[in-house]
Design a protein around this nucleic acid. Sequence first.
RNA 1: GGAUGGGUGGCCGAGUGGUUUAAGGCACCGGUCUUGAAAACCGGCAGGCCGGAAACGGUCUCGGGGGUUCGAAUCCCUCCCCAUCCGCCA
Length: 500
Amino acid sequence: MHDIKQIRENRDAFVAALARRASAFDGRSPDETAADILDLDARWRAAKANFEQHRARQNEASRAIGQAKAKKDEAGAKALMDEVAHLKQAIQKDEADERALDEELKKKLAGLPNLPAEDVPAGPDEAFNVEVKERAFGAPPKFDFKPKEHFELGEALGLMDFERAAKVSGARFVYLKGALAKLERSLGAFMLDVQTAKFDDGKLGGYVEIVPPLMVTDDAAFGTGQLPKFEEDLFAAVNIREIAQVATGPGKVLEAYESALRIEEFQTAHPEEVDYEQLGAAYQRTAEAAQERIRSFKRKRWLIPTAEVPLTNLVREEILDEAQLPMRLTAWTPCFRAEAGAAGKDTRGMIRQHQFSKVELVSIVAPEQSVAEHERMTDCAQEVLKRLGLAHRVVTLCTGDMGFSAQKTYDIEVWLPGQDRFREISSCSNCGDFQARRMNARYRPKDGKGTRFVHTLNGSGLAVGRTLIAVLENYQDADGSIRIPDVLQHYMGMKKIEKR
RNA sequence: GGAUGGGUGGCCGAGUGGUUUAAGGCACCGGUCUUGAAAACCGGCAGGCCGGAAACGGUCUCGGGGGUUCGAAUCCCUCCCCAUCCGCCA
């Protein structure tokens, strides 16, 4: 969420930063967007001044009535009561106006992405990402045979089963068995151990391990920026009985449905006038009304697409003491993603699943610390890959490739021999105060008055499923067996996953 | 799911059957005193928004929303959350 005061005072900088992100937002150019917002803001402030002025008079008169009554001046009280009675109508309208404008303004602001940091490269898509050369690690391993992809290896071992998963859960799910199930568990435990360790120099680790809720409310999802724009990426969890109770009542769903039925009935009776487009639109309206109904169902929860959501929201609506910062949190959780926009992409294997597990890192810091914390967090994520001996590189995402809430993002890409290319395995973002504003998460500076918004950062440390893929592909032998990296051997209790 | 009781400032807690300004304590900050500290005493001490160069003024917030009223922490409706007991349950 943007600070309207900043936009007011630095319109040009706002427009320029927005323009670096994209050329248009909801069909409006950055300049038009700023104009829309500032116009709304001006109208809102005028409405607010008007409303408050009238309300002030009302309060003043009410106090006077109390005093008049105390003095038994019934006539004076009556006169004032008459005045306020007239004022009330106007005040109600004033308040409604003020509120409508305020909501419209907030809605506009809530739909805009964070502004990119100055050192983020500009560009429309991932082709414009820039490698951070000094962060690169290792060289792709050499094979004297053609390395296989992870799913070939896993299926050949009989330890990775997509077909049965599809029968039970549909596409984009998997069963891991035996040593591969244990590898998943070992990786999660190993990553948590690295991130929670206390290093003497304080340059790595120090994260507090958390087991967070896996289902969150609308407000939490709004706080980190998944809502309102990216609803389609999420899975909702509802209690079927509860939602039936709200959905069966009269309302727009029923109206829309009955209207569609009438159209269908009419067209059936008059085959010469059949208009499928009209009928389709009527049913579409029904579906949309039903969707709206579910959307407004308050007891719905969202399955987390990342532990970033419950971890970051841990400080929502709080005023922290500066001494509590930096707050570093980590959690190993399942993540659920609808992958609505990824139809046909990565359909084979475990790269893109509806469910995967991830060790997440979240830092809550004072504003001055966030840039350094971003580098530190990226170090923490890389540390896991280094200890696993996996070659990787780091790229700075360009303005067009960054997520909604990010100010700056590093993606870590691990080398996958089976795919013969680098694939994203971690994404570390500095969100500045963007999420903090949406969550209303603040802290009280040690010296100085008032409160300031905290800065929030999140990163994967790492995506466990993809790390498992990387281990399989990088540590495969010609016979299809998998060597276990040194640091995992005591977790696994073995040095090798033998071929079947 | 049923029954009952609750939700007040950073914390504790008074106020709750109508008349502005939320008592008091703890914690915290500043000061006096002291070699220093403690104690004592004095003072300060929620946040958001709008206007203002500032001083300051206004407005909103007593779990959320709505209502009654000239006026709501207080009355009414509704939702949420917490506690205890019962039932069911991993």
